Simulated scan of single mutants.
Amino acid sequence: MSAHFVLPPAAAGVNPHRHARTLAQIPLLDPVLYQPHAQRPVRSKMRELDRDTLIMPHAHAWAQLAISTGGVIRLSLADATYIVPPHRAVWVPPGVEHAVTMVETARLYTLYFLPEAYGGGPQARWMAAPDWQQCRVLEASPLLRALVVEMDTGSDEAAPLSPAVVAREHHLSALICEELRRARIMHLGVLLPQDKRLKNLCEAVLQDPTRHERLEDWVLDTGASLRTVARLFRSELGCTFTQWRQQVVLAQAVALAARHWSIAQIAAELGYTPSAFSALVRRTVGMTAAAFLGQGLGAP
């Protein structure tokens, strides 16, 4: 599967934050002031944002990479939300409407990439590949994080950059693109269902995945039989309820890890022993729990 961590949808009349704490909505920094162009095909902006800050839904004609320092961000699309800790980044193709929520206080770096069709040149051809036409969560290497921090974050209202600074930006952006192409893709999570009964159940699990463990207990409020719900999980989501819930558990673990919880604390919070949780992570994503949760990685 090519989906990622998924939380309730942001469109079709569903508010992805209706179970969350009260959010402080803030206006956009006019993205046109950071618009990439042929002379500067990769641009960057940075905002220091408090926990529970929501940047309202928006879209633009260029691709975007969102990465934070020190906190978790939640990027919501029309049908999914991506949970992104500091050691990962999320890619958004051109034209995709999205909103960003700060789960923890952090600096949010947003990089804009000019597609080849808009003047990005041959060096932007990689972005036209089919794999880059969908959102994806990527491992952010220490080099990628260091390069992002070094990019100029001034808007077009700032003083023009000197030729030397522009040349340095070209070198930095070329390395950023190379690191993105080499980055490991995190294929985690499942798509959300269309069936209203199953969607309501999934939202309840996403709100509190530890409330019940058995599907039999979750179906009580759906108005559907256990057999029907189990069939819907397979037909709409391509997996069993247990497999789907495990992905939700991993998403919750990512957010808890950003609070500097130990693996033992995270496991206990999610209803696992440390050994059982570590086995779940290795079985699901093929890496140790410490590597998956970014524990031991240096800060940007």
Rank of each mutant, 00 (worst) to 15 (best):
194 Q>P: 04
284 T>C: 03
163 P>H: 06
21 R>G: 15
107 R>Q: 11
152 D>Q: 02
25 Q>M: 14
180 L>R: 07
46 M>D: 02
282 R>C: 05
202 C>T: 13
130 P>F: 04
281 V>A: 02
292 F>H: 08
87 H>Q: 08
51 R>M: 09
70 G>A: 00
289 A>S: 12
115 P>M: 05
197 R>K: 07
157 E>C: 09
40 R>W: 01
42 V>S: 06
131 D>A: 09
112 Y>D: 06
181 R>E: 15
223 G>W: 02
37 H>T: 03
140 A>G: 08
143 L>E: 15
57 P>H: 05
180 L>I: 10
253 A>D: 05
189 G>T: 00
164 A>N: 09
259 R>S: 12
267 A>K: 02
82 Y>F: 10
205 V>N: 08
17 H>S: 10
273 T>E: 15
3 A>T: 11
93 P>D: 01
290 A>H: 12
289 A>R: 00
275 S>K: 00
149 V>S: 01
153 T>V: 14
80 A>G: 10
234 R>F: 13
240 T>H: 08
124 A>P: 15
243 Q>G: 04
44 S>Y: 08
207 Q>N: 14
117 A>S: 13
266 I>D: 02
11 A>T: 07
14 V>N: 12
201 L>V: 11
264 A>C: 06
149 V>F: 04
292 F>C: 01
225 S>M: 12
24 A>V: 08
49 L>A: 09
15 N>Y: 10
28 L>F: 10
134 Q>N: 05
288 T>K: 02
246 Q>A: 05
63 A>T: 13
156 D>I: 06
182 R>L: 13
65 L>G: 00
232 L>G: 05
295 Q>R: 15
165 V>M: 13
243 Q>F: 06
51 R>H: 04
158 A>D: 14
277 F>Y: 13
70 G>F: 09
179 E>L: 01
115 P>I: 01
64 Q>Y: 00
32 V>T: 06
183 A>Q: 09
221 D>C: 05
207 Q>E: 15
205 V>D: 14
79 D>A: 13
145 R>S: 13
78 A>P: 00
97 E>L: 11
161 L>N: 02
203 E>T: 02
129 A>W: 00
8 P>F: 04
210 T>R: 12
158 A>M: 11
129 A>F: 03
201 L>Q: 03
154 G>V: 03
63 A>H: 11
32 V>L: 10
41 P>L: 01
278 S>T: 12
175 L>V: 05
88 R>D: 11
242 T>K: 07
286 G>M: 14
4 H>F: 14
166 V>N: 03
161 L>Y: 02
15 N>D: 15
195 D>L: 11
260 H>R: 02
168 R>V: 12
251 A>E: 03
29 L>V: 13
82 Y>C: 03
91 W>V: 01
294 G>T: 12
52 D>L: 09
195 D>W: 03
182 R>I: 01
57 P>T: 08
234 R>P: 05
89 A>V: 04
39 Q>E: 14
171 H>V: 06
61 A>P: 03
266 I>V: 14
30 D>V: 03
42 V>E: 04
54 L>G: 03
237 L>Q: 07
141 S>K: 03
243 Q>E: 15
6 V>S: 10
242 T>L: 05
106 A>F: 00
264 A>Y: 08
111 L>D: 06
13 G>L: 04
204 A>F: 01
200 N>Q: 14
253 A>G: 12
216 E>V: 10
210 T>H: 01
